[in-house]
């Protein structure tokens, strides 16, 4: 028996909204440590990795580790029926083929809605993610990251992130012209959430497909800060720290022919 209760359905809804564009079917692996999910897009360009620890839930029970194979679009149909502050209970039997989602309206205790989603058998590649030292780490407000990617995507299909000791620069170039946004490292005293933190051992510049970068900034509502970890010639590791877990992307860089 698996049963997990989230005080705010919106947490799970935001997670699923963040993966809807690149990932069709995903396994949500439930264990006594919490729920985790790892999925690679069909083109093998981006990998999403998510963990919601037991502390994220107001109650949590998982007698036996199970994988809940879910179609993201179907799951979203159900999650979108909920109010953001509804209490969400997810339940599955050990050998069942359904995930039950129950929403309780915190402002109207007389209303309870219940949905059953058919589980899928997803043949998924599990990737081992190596421990990696990154030579450049930029941590910035996730809303700022989202804005930069949104603005520059209009200029070109490819965005370069250039991290140096004194700042980070995002550049796009396309048919209509080019654009760039530079951020200098700063620390807003008393406003840690707004600071731009830059730790660069070695300057690094990597180019990415802007369509994929756009996907990685959809998670901005999940956390106030995002960190971009880079090293030459390997995937960028983009991570949002959640209250009890993380939501991260690995995205392969572009290489020149």
């Amino acid at each position: 028996m698996f049963e997990a209760k989230l005080n705010e359905a919106s947490v799970f809804k935001k997670i699923v909204e963040s993966v809807k564009d690149g990932f069709k079917n995903c396994n949500f692996d439930c264990s006594e440590e919490g729920i985790s999910m790892e999925s690679m897009d069909d083109a093998h360009i981006a990998l999403v990795s998510m963990k919601l620890g037991v502390e994220a839930f107001s109650s949590y029970r998982c007698d036996r580790s199970i994988s809940l194979g879910l179609n993201i679009e179907s799951l979203l149909k159900v999650l979108r029926t909920a109010n953001n502050n509804d209490v969400l209970t997810m339940r599955a039997e050990d050998d069942g083929d359904l995930l039950t989602l129950v929403f309780e309206d915190s402002s109207n205790p007389d209303r309870i809605s219940e949905y059953n989603l058919k589980l899928l058998n997803i043949d998924q590649e599990h990737m081992s993610i190596p421990e990696q030292e990154y030579t450049a780490t930029v941590t910035l407000p996730s809303s700022e990251y989202q804005r930069i990617i949104r603005d520059l995507t209009q200029l070109g299909d490819s965005i370069t992130i250039d991290a140096a000791k004194d700042g980070v620069r995002f550049t796009a170039e396309g048919d209509i012209g080019s654009g760039s946004v530079s951020l200098k490292a700063n620390t807003n005293v008393g406003e840690d959430e707004k600071s731009i933190d830059i730790a660069v051992e070695e300057p690094v510049a990597l180019g990415f497909n802007s369509k994929y970068l756009t996907q990685t900034c959809k998670a901005a509502p999940l956390a106030p800060r995002v960190s971009l970890n880079m090293c030459k010639r390997i995937p960028i590791f983009i991570s949002y720290k959640l209250q009890a877990g993380h939501f991260s992307f690995f995205l392969a860089p572009q290489i020149s022919e």
Partner: peptide, 14 residues
């Protein structure tokens, strides 16, 4: 034009 890499090159399948 730049070519996007394949993540499979970086992560090993398990």
């Amino acid at each position: 034009t730049p070519i996007q890499n394949d993540l499979g090159e970086f992560f090993t399948m398990v």
